[in-house]
Write a protein that binds this DNA or RNA. Structure first.
Lengths: 248, 248
DNA sequence: GCAATAGTGTCTTTGAGACAATATTGC
DNA sequence: GCAATATTGTCTCAAAGACACTATTGC
């Protein structure tokens, strides 16, 4: 048994002068709602303070109680947690918050490294989870916890810019899809009318490059000519077109 | 004066189970060496452990002794520090390390949020700073401290992909430049021969869009016809072309 | 048959690439 | 003059966009 001066202990604890600090990862999981023709983001109801009872992007602290091998492993831990509970078919790191870090979390100085994920339309949510139209959150029409509206805005911007040049929109569709689906999902992302001809040629390019293949099946919408059914073959990488799609 | 049990203090200190953690920002400052026709990155000689005496990207710890308002402010602190000491004309956050975080710093678990910066060719370095060809570091031909080779690779990749679609290469040139300069800097970045016609038309597009203006001056290289001198007007944003430049 | 909607075919437009023709300097 | 190097002008090519035309279904 040793006796020490508690004031000395406090001085000692403060000697390296490190302030409280939290580093989190958050993820914006996106799906395409084909019925409503809109891209949606998954929110989860917070079970703990701060912002208990409010909607937020799913996220975990990475410098807290659990030590991961890497941030990449921490992302897997988040995906496996009750906050998510299902896998995405595509992940991409979007950025790390660089504004207002001193005040963005009421607990202490903090930063968040945030990701974008693409999930199947068929994913079934739990009670404490919900899909909302992406633009509702990115535009700040509905407020969510922390600065997650700003994070969502950056995820939305990344989705738009990457959809301009790459095959990313196709990943939002089911494995089997039609050219019309591609036109619709692109139009939803760009919030604009998309040229049918251009989109059809892009699909042909993806077939030529082996990212998509044709099937012998046809589907029939309520009206119009029968639509040829395509099938996505490659889901773990993107094809980059050498021209942009019009986003006006 | 209070007396407490030192074992209890230790248990108390460990109760929240937070492991040691460091979050840094690092920056790859790029310039174009017009004589050698190569893009170079600035390295700084480390004055402290770990990796004392080795070359590294300039960086600072953001959850250490100094509390910033934001990561953005921390970036300003890095730029103002002796590790840098001059300003860049363009900054862009590239990413945050997500692999090997448990072991990438010998001190403890760590992550780095890293930036790319574009600086003038005329910047004069201090004794503990040096320029090296970007590819020498990004390819791992010369090893530098921490995982900064990998970070440099990601910065190099970002430079290449952004140069494919945007006016970023022009920012590497002086305020006054010629079309030939633009062809050369693009060729250096892409590590390929660049079409003269295409590059000239890109310059014309930038003039049309107000990013660049023509001057009445001409410069004379040692051989060849006199070259029209252009001037960069907008340096704080990029123009995005709607087609890619060939990178073969 | 007609409206609504979807696929197909043709023409235009835009911007990048190839290449020949022209301009300038050092020897 | 000639080689080396730079600009200018013309033609081609690839991919996106516009739009007319055809195909299919529900009423």
């Amino acid at each position: 048994m040793y006796y020490i001066d508690i004031d000395l202990v406090e001085i000692n604890l403060m000697s390296d002068n490190k302030f409280d600090y939290l580093h989190s990862i958050d993820i914006g999981l996106l799906r395409y709602n084909s019925a409503k023709k809109q891209v949606e983001i998954m929110l989860v109801l917070r079970q703990n303070d701060p912002f208990i009872g409010q909607w937020a992007l799913p996220g975990i602290v990475i410098n807290g109680d659990t030590e991961d091998e890497s941030i990449h492993d921490a992302l897997q831990r988040l995906i496996s947690s009750t906050k998510v509970g299902f896998k995405a078919k595509y992940y991409e790191q979007v950025g790390t918050t660089e504004e207002n870090n001193k005040h963005r979390d009421p607990r202490c100085w903090s930063s968040s490294t945030f990701y974008m994920g693409i999930i199947d339309e068929s994913v079934v949510l739990k009670k404490n989870q919900r899909f909302v139209k992406l633009e509702t959150i990115s535009s700040g029409q509905e407020y969510i916890a922390f600065d997650h509206n700003l994070i969502t805005k950056q995820i939305h911007d990344r989705l738009i810019s990457k959809s301009t040049y790459s095959s990313l929109p196709i990943l939002l569709l089911n494995e089997h899809f039609t050219v019309l689906d591609a036109i619709n999902v692109c139009g939803s992302i760009m919030n604009a009318e998309i040229s049918k001809t251009g989109q059809r040629k892009r699909c042909e390019k993806l077939i030529e490059q082996g990212f998509v293949e044709t099937t012998n099946q046809k589907t029939q919408a309520s009206r119009g000519a029968p639509q040829g059914l395509l099938r996505t073959v490659i889901t773990n990488k993107l094809y980059f077109f050498d021209r942009a799609i019009s986003a006006q």
